[in-house]
Computed example of a mutant assay.
Amino acid sequence: MRMDRSGDGEGPVISGFSGRGFVIDGGVYEGLWITPARADGWLPPSIEKLSEAHLAPLLQLDPHPEFLLLGTGARLIRPPQALTATLERRGIGIEAMDSRAAARAWGVLRAELRWIAAALYPLDAVA
């Protein structure tokens, strides 16, 4: 599937889906970290083990992201409460949704030049 985005957000653009992954600049990432500056592959832990340490590169943006989009795979799974509380103490919200919805939200929010980060589980993962 190909996704086209209107607007001119800066940084990497998720242009579609391929198999288990996300298409960015012709490459496919099954697990993905994405910031306004770059996109990197990510091997995520099971969702119940997800911690601040697993997201450290995303949380080191300067300035800190407004919030973190968390794509939890094929369906929405709530992140651990401890992670949510830790991020909130740092002033960073977390928005969890299935990974396809998170990829689409990334495009819309970056077109608005929102300063966000995203961690996306593979599309077929039941995180």
Rank of each mutant, 00 (worst) to 15 (best):
T84I: 11
P80A: 01
Q60A: 14
L70K: 06
A118M: 11
R114H: 04
V108M: 07
I47Y: 06
G21Q: 11
A101Y: 08
L69P: 05
R38A: 15
G11Y: 05
A85P: 03
G7Q: 04
R104F: 02
T86N: 13
E95V: 09
D4S: 15
T72Y: 00
E30H: 10
D4R: 15
Y29L: 13
M97V: 08
L83H: 08
P122M: 15
R2H: 13
D98G: 04
A53H: 12
T72F: 00
R20N: 12
R2L: 12
A117N: 02
I94D: 07
A119G: 11
R38K: 14
I34S: 07
A37I: 03
Q60Y: 04
D98F: 01
M3H: 07
G41E: 06
W115E: 04
V28C: 09
G16W: 00
R38S: 13
I47D: 06
G26V: 14
A96P: 07
G91V: 10
E112N: 12
L83C: 12
S46R: 10
W106V: 02
E52H: 13
P45H: 12
S15P: 15
G26H: 12
G31W: 02
H64G: 09
A101S: 15
G9K: 00
W106K: 05
P122R: 14
D4H: 15
D8H: 13
A125T: 14
R5Q: 06
K49Y: 02
L113Q: 15
A82K: 11
E112Y: 07
A127V: 07
G27I: 02
D8A: 11
R90W: 00
M3G: 09
W106S: 01
R104M: 06
I94Q: 10
G93L: 09
G73H: 06
E48N: 06
G107Y: 08
F22S: 12
L69A: 06
E30N: 13
M1K: 10
A117C: 02
L109K: 05
V28W: 03
S15Q: 15
D40K: 07
D25I: 14
R78Q: 11
M3E: 08
L55H: 14
M3I: 14
H64F: 03
L70E: 05
L83E: 10
S15L: 15
H64L: 11
V108D: 02
R5H: 03
G71F: 01
A85G: 09
L32D: 13
M97H: 11
S6R: 07
G93Y: 08
A53M: 08
L113H: 15
G19C: 10
G16F: 01
P12E: 07
G107H: 09
P36C: 09
S99Y: 10
A118F: 07
I77Q: 10
A111P: 14
M3F: 02
R5Y: 06
S46W: 02
L109S: 06
H54R: 03
I77S: 06
G31M: 03
G93K: 08
R104N: 07
T84L: 05
A117H: 01
A102V: 04
A85H: 09
G26A: 15
E112S: 12
D40H: 05
H54F: 00
G7E: 03
G73S: 09
